[in-house]
Every structure is written in structure tokens, then in C-alpha cells.
């Protein structure tokens, strides 16, 4: 397959279908980290990604995968970073949320603060335990216990279902 004069549609499609290395049921488009694809010459494209968490090492893999997949499709690609606006779990698409649930992960609810927090406004302290109204992605029960706010990756918390007793991961709101 080689780059044809099809504008950027093919390049956009290829970049959008690259998957997250930690949550491969999500494409970069589903995850909301793909911020743009633009041309910078014949067969040359620039893909813009935004990091999820400041230290998430998956970004390096995403960048490499984007470059390789586009190379396979006949494009010379490079990746730029977009830092602003900061990524939010609200950017995970509805299709991505369904894919998470289909793979036994709990999808995030609305991010705290969100639009109502203006930049520069103080952040209130929350001493009470984190409470989320979740259902078990395996059996659908609503009685779940938080095991830990921190999981195997920066973006996930650990839960256990009281009904089916299975542990599951919840993608955190940020």
C-alpha cells in the first residue's frame, strides 16, 4: 500500500486506528489523545498527540506505533506533542467506553471540576473516601468495593464486586 493523493483521509484513518498499548481495546481516537493529523508535504504528515498523565510511559509507545503504522501505509510521519488543553477522561468516546466495558473494565464517570473550574481557582481538599456509583463490568451488580485508588497504570483504580467477587479495574476520572 502506498500513499496516494487522497488528501489526509487515509493518514487520519491509520493514525486513529492505532491502539493504546496498555488498553488495546481502545484506539487513540477512542482514548481522545489523537489531537490532529496534518500534511507537511507530499506523503509527509504530522500527527499531534496529547499525553494522558504527565508521566505515562505509554505515550512513547503510541508515538512509535503511529510512526510505524503510517510508514506501513506509505507515509513519512512525525509526532508532535500538544500539552494544552490537558487531557480529560471525558474525552474517551462512547465507543471507547463500550469497548472498555466489553473487556471487563469500568468506564470513567464525568471528570471532577470539569468545565466549572476556572483556571487559577483553588482546589478543595477531599478527606472523605472516594465514592463512585459503579456497576461491575462483569456481572452488572451495583455493590462494589474500592480496593485501591491506584492500580497497575496511572489511569486506573482497583475495585471488587461484592456479588460475583471478581476484581476489576476502573478508569479514573481526571
Amino acid at each position: 500500500m502506498s500513499a496516494v493523493d487522497d488528501g489526509l483521509e487515509t493518514a487520519r484513518e491509520v493514525a486513529a486506528q492505532v491502539t493504546d498499548p496498555e488498553m488495546p481495546m481502545l484506539t487513540l481516537a477512542d482514548l481522545g489523545v489523537l489531537r490532529g493529523v496534518r500534511a507537511e508535504g507530499p506523503g509527509r504528515v504530522v500527527v499531534t498527540l496529547t499525553p494522558t498523565y504527565s508521566g505515562c510511559p505509554a505515550l512513547a509507545t503510541m508515538r512509535d506505533d503511529v510512526v510505524h503504522r503510517l510508514r506501513d501505509a506509505g507515509y513519512a510521519a512525525r509526532v508532535e506533542v500538544s500539552l494544552s488543553p490537558a487531557w480529560s477522561s471525558d474525552w474517551i468516546s462512547e465507543g471507547g467506553r463500550q469497548a472498555l466495558r466489553a473487556h471487563g473494565l469500568s468506564a470513567p464517570g464525568p471528570a471532577p471540576g470539569g468545565a466549572e473550574r476556572r483556571s487559577g481557582a483553588p482546589v478543595p481538599l477531599t478527606l472523605a473516601p472516594v465514592r463512585r456509583a459503579l456497576t461491575c463490568p462483569r456481572c452488572g451488580a451495583g455493590e462494589v468495593d474500592l480496593t485501591s485508588e491506584f492500580g497497575a497504570t496511572a489511569c486506573k483504580a482497583l475495585y471488587r464486586c461484592r456479588a460475583c467477587r471478581e476484581p476489576f479495574e476502573h478508569v479514573k476520572e481526571i
Partner: peptide, 24 residues
């Protein structure tokens, strides 16, 4: 500095749950 502002905006989200965790 827009770069510093962007790094800060992202960091605020992370520091928020870090501070809650330590305080608890």
C-alpha cells in the same frame, strides 16, 4: 509562559488526588 501554564494545568489534576491521598 504558555508552556509552563500547560504543564501546570495538567499537574493540578494529578496533585489534587496526590494531596487527598496523603491527607487521608
Amino acid at each position: 509562559d504558555p508552556v509552563l501554564a500547560a504543564i501546570a494545568a495538567k499537574g493540578v489534576k494529578e496533585l489534587t488526588y496526590q494531596r487527598d491521598h496523603a491527607a487521608r
